[in-house]
Every structure is written in structure tokens, then in C-alpha cells.
């Protein structure tokens, strides 16, 4: 599917990004290096405003980096987007309000010029997966916040992306649904093995899903720590209450808090 010139996955070397804030530059992301190997799931965690969304937007080519190199499956972000390498779900579902659930999920296919009719079965499967069977023709305004978020997740998966960018996709869901979606995401991911970058506020969610947790700090936004998570897969829900899970949770919380003092 992809045949980049460099190793696959995400590779970021020395990427920086600053915004203009009242005329003065504001450093949202300090020179950042990050490598996510092909098929790896990396979770990003950090305080609000530390640049997590910015990092994701740089990788998706939605903002130009001020400097440094970003390669996605060996392509520049813009080229990767054009080739349909990416799947993305934002912090906010951002569904087109005039489209039905079905049509919203089909949108990436249309933009990429792919055949929607051929993907019918796949879209139906995704709708079932996110538990929205029976809502195919509903408009976003008729759905609850959590349901909308699930549509956005289905939309992110519809192109069978080799790189998946998820920005707090479960932020709007209640705890029980969230756990279930964690399980589902793990299942989908194990089947598809997309290279995945998952932004989250939940330490437990990050540890449950990720091969590696990146801890970021704010002012300026930067990567402060990287913690490997070696639990065998598939991980059961009982992992949440395992002692070694608690130990790792403490380690991540530590890394999160040291930056604050």
C-alpha cells in the first residue's frame, strides 16, 4: 500500500511550531523528535495546552511545521494525506451536520476519489462495530455526544489507514462505554495493525492500549518522557486492576507531575 523512501511509520526530527499570540510568537512545540515504528500504538499524554493536538495536526499536514522533518510512511504529511495513508479523529467529532451517519463515514472515501459503493459492506461493518446499527440515516443533531464521537471513530477507520491519528477520541464517552471502546480499539488495531498515535488524558487508557506512552510538558510544549508498556496482547479488562498496571500508572503520573514544580 505504501512504498515510501524511508522506514515506515511516523518519523519526526526536530519539528518545531510556534503561533502568533497578540503579535508575539508563542512556542507551542519545542524541537521535537519522535519515532513511531510501523504498527506500533503510541499514546501521548500531557497537561492541557502542552501541544498534543498541535503535534497531531503537524503530522496530518494541517499546519506547516516551522522547522524540522516529518515523514509519514516515508511521505511528507501533505503527500501522505493525498495518498490516503492517514485516518484521523479529532478531539471534537466535527461531523458534517447535513450528512447522515452513513454519508459522514463515507466522506473520506469520496474525498480520496475511492468507490463508495464497493465499500458499502465495510461501512456497515464499522457502524455495527461502533454500536450504531439502526442509526445509519440519522443526522448528527439527532445523536448524543458519545454517539457522534463513535461516528467520528468509524470515519477515521473507513479508509483502512496505515497511520491512525486519534485526538482524545473517547473524551466524550462515559466510563463504561469508554472501557468497551478501549477493548474495541485494541481489537481493531490488532487486526489492522495501523501505526497509531493516540492522544488521551487518561493514564489508564494510555497504559491499557499503548506499546509506549509519551509524556509531554507545557511551556514550551515538549516531550518529557517515554515509557515502554510491555503487557502482552490481547489485554483483558482485568489488566486495569493488576498490580504491575498500578506501578506503571504511578510511574507515568510521576513523569507528568515532575514537570510542574
Amino acid at each position: 500500500m505504501s512504498s515510501g523512501t524511508a522506514p515506515e511509520g511516523i518519523r519526526i526530527v526536530g519539528a518545531t511550531k510556534s503561533f502568533k499570540l497578540d503579535g508575539a510568537p508563542f512556542l507551542a512545540l519545542q524541537s521535537t523528535d519522535l519515532a513511531v515504528a510501523q504498527g506500533q500504538l503510541v499514546a501521548v499524554i500531557g497537561p492541557s495546552g502542552c501541544g498534543k493536538s498541535t503535534l497531531l495536526r503537524l503530522i496530518a499536514g494541517l499546519e506547516p511545521a516551522d522547522g524540522g522533518d516529518i515523514l509519514v510512511d516515508g511521505w511528507t504529511p501533505a503527500e501522505a494525506a493525498r495518498r490516503g495513508v492517514l485516518g484521523i479523529a479529532f478531539q471534537d467529532p466535527a461531523l458534517l451536520p447535513w450528512r447522515s451517519v452513513l454519508a459522514n463515514i463515507a466522506l473520506p472515501l469520496q474525498v480520496l476519489g475511492r468507490n463508495v459503493a464497493e465499500a458499502k459492506g465495510r461501512i456497515a461493518e464499522l457502524i455495527a462495530l461502533v454500536g450504531l446499527r439502526g442509526f445509519e440515516t440519522a443526522r448528527p443533531s439527532q445523536l448524543s455526544g458519545g454517539m457522534r464521537q463513535r461516528v467520528a471513530i468509524a470515519r477515521a477507520l473507513v479508509t483502512e489507514p496505515s497511520v491512525l491519528l486519534l485526538d482524545e477520541p473517547f473524551g466524550a464517552l462515559d466510563q463504561i462505554l469508554r472501557r468497551n471502546m478501549n477493548l474495541e480499539l485494541q481489537r481493531i488495531w490488532m487486526r489492522q495493525r495501523s501505526t497509531t498515535l493516540l492522544v488521551t488524558h487518561g493514564i489508564d487508557e494510555a497504559l491499557f492500549l499503548a506499546d509506549r506512552v509519551i509524556v509531554m510538558q507545557a511551556r514550551p510544549g515538549r516531550i518529557a518522557a517515554s515509557i515502554d508498556v510491555a503487557f502482552p496482547r490481547p489485554r483483558p479488562l482485568s489488566l486495569f486492576s493488576a498490580p504491575e498496571f498500578a506501578a506503571l500508572t504511578a510511574q507515568v503520573a510521576d513523569a507528568l507531575h515532575t514537570g510542574e514544580g
Binding site: 495536526r57 496530518a60 499536514g61 494541517l62 501533505a78 494525506a81 493525498r82 495518498r83 490516503g84 492517514l86 484521523i88 479529532f90 471534537d92 466535527a94 458534517l96 466522506l107 473520506p108 469520496q110 474525498v111 480520496l112 470515519r155 479508509t159
Partner: peptide, 22 residues
Amino acid sequence: DPRFADIIRAYGGGTFTILWRV
């Protein structure tokens, strides 16, 4: 809504696709 344009651009759509679809 700028987020709609983001979605289109994340899948490689440009000015015309955003005009047409959004």
C-alpha cells in the same frame, strides 16, 4: 466551521474539494 475543512484536508482534499463538499 474550520474543523470541516480540516477533515477534508486530512484526506488530501484541497480548496476545490472543500468548496464542493463543505
